[in-house]
C-alpha cells in the first residue's frame, strides 16, 4: 500500500507547474462561460415554462460538457500527461527502477483520473457561479429558484464515472504511442464520431457518447444506468487490459 501511495505522490509531483494541472480548472470554467455567455446574450427565459430554469441551465452545460468538451479535454489531458514521459524518454528510467511496472502505469492512470475528477468536481461550483451571475446580470432568464446542488453534484459524478472508459482508453493511447499528434487525433475523431452516433440504438454504448447521454437527462433527473455501468466498469476492465499490455511490452 505504501508503494502505491508513493507512486501516486510521485505522479502528483510531476504535475507541478504543468499546463495539464491548470487545464483541469480551465476546461469546466470555459464550458460554463460559453453557455452562460449565450444565456446572457439571449436575455430572456430560455427554459420551457414547465421546467425549472436551473435544471435547464444545468442540463445545457452538462450535455455539452459530457458529449464534446470533456472527451476532448480527456484527450488533451491524457496526451499531456503521456508527453511528460515521452518528451524526455522517461520510460527507460522509470521501468529500470525497482518498482513494479503495473504500479507505474497505474499511477499514470490515476493522474488522468485525478485531473478529470478535479474538473468534474469544479463543474458544479462553476455552474452555480455562472447561474448566480446570470441571476444578477440578467434577471430575465429567471434563474430565481434555489441552486440544485444535489443534482449538480450527482450528475457531475455520474458523468465522471461514465467517462472512466475513455479516460483509460486515452491513457493507454497516450502511453502506448509516443506521438502527441496520434493521441490528439484519435481523441478528436472518436469524439466527433460520438456526436454522430449518439442517436443510434447502440449509441449509448459508444464510449465517447456515454458522458453526453448521461448529461442529457439532467433536467429529467433520469440516471442512465446502462451507459453508466458500461463507462465505469468498462473503464476498470480497460485499465487492467492496458496495464497488462504495458507491463509485458519491451521498452525500446
Amino acid at each position: 500500500m505504501a508503494m502505491v501511495l508513493q507512486s501516486l505522490s510521485a505522479e502528483m509531483l510531476k504535475l507541478k507547474h504543468t499546463l495539464a494541472f491548470w487545464l483541469a480548472l480551465v476546461a469546466p470554467l470555459s464550458m460554463v462561460v460559453l453557455e452562460s455567455g449565450m444565456w446572457f446574450d439571449m436575455n430572456r427565459r430560455v427554459a420551457p415554462p414547465e421546467v425549472d430554469s436551473w435544471l435547464w441551465y444545468g442540463q445545457s452545460i452538462y450535455v455539452f460538457w459530457g458529449l464534446l468538451i470533456m472527451p476532448l479535454f480527456v484527450t488533451l489531458e491524457t496526451a499531456l500527461v503521456g508527453q511528460l514521459e515521452h518528451a524526455q524518454e522517461h520510460w527507460k528510467h522509470l521501468y529500470a527502477l525497482p518498482v513494479p511496472r503495473g504500479l507505474i502505469y497505474g499511477a499514470k492512470q490515476f493522474a488522468g483520473m485525478f485531473l478529470i475528477g478535479v474538473s468534474c468536481l469544479a463543474l458544479p461550483f462553476f455552474t452555480a457561479l455562472g447561474g448566480l451571475f446570470l441571476r444578477w446580470a440578467r434577471p430575465a432568464v429567471e434563474l430565481t429558484g434555489p441552486i440544485p446542488w444535489f443534482m449538480l453534484f450527482k450528475y457531475s459524478l455520474a458523468i465522471y464515472l461514465g467517462a472512466w472508459l475513455i479516460i483509460t482508453i486515452h491513457t493507454w493511447i497516450s502511453q502506448r504511442w509516443k506521438s502527441f499528434a496520434v493521441a490528439c487525433t484519435a481523441g478528436v475523431l472518436l469524439t466527433i464520431a460520438g456526436v454522430f452516433v449518439i442517436n443510434a440504438d447502440w449509441g449509448q454504448y459508444w464510449p465517447w457518447a456515454i458522458a453526453g447521454i448521461i448529461g442529457n437527462k439532467f433536467d429529467e433527473n433520469v440516471l442512465q444506468v446502462a451507459p453508466l455501468l458500461v463507462g465505469s466498469i468498462g473503464g476498470v476492465v480497460m485499465a487492467f487490459v492496458a496495464g497488462w499490455d504495458v507491463v509485458r511490452r519491451d521498452v525500446l
Binding site: A2, M3, Q6, S7, S9, A10, L13, K14, K16, H17, T18, H93, L94, L97, P98, V99, I104
Partner: peptide, 16 residues
C-alpha cells in the same frame, strides 16, 4: 519543468 531537487524527489518517492 521541475527543479533539480524535485526531479530527484520524484524518483525518491518511487524507490522509497
Amino acid at each position: 519543468h521541475l527543479s533539480g531537487r524535485d526531479n530527484l524527489e520524484v524518483t525518491r518517492r518511487l524507490i522509497d
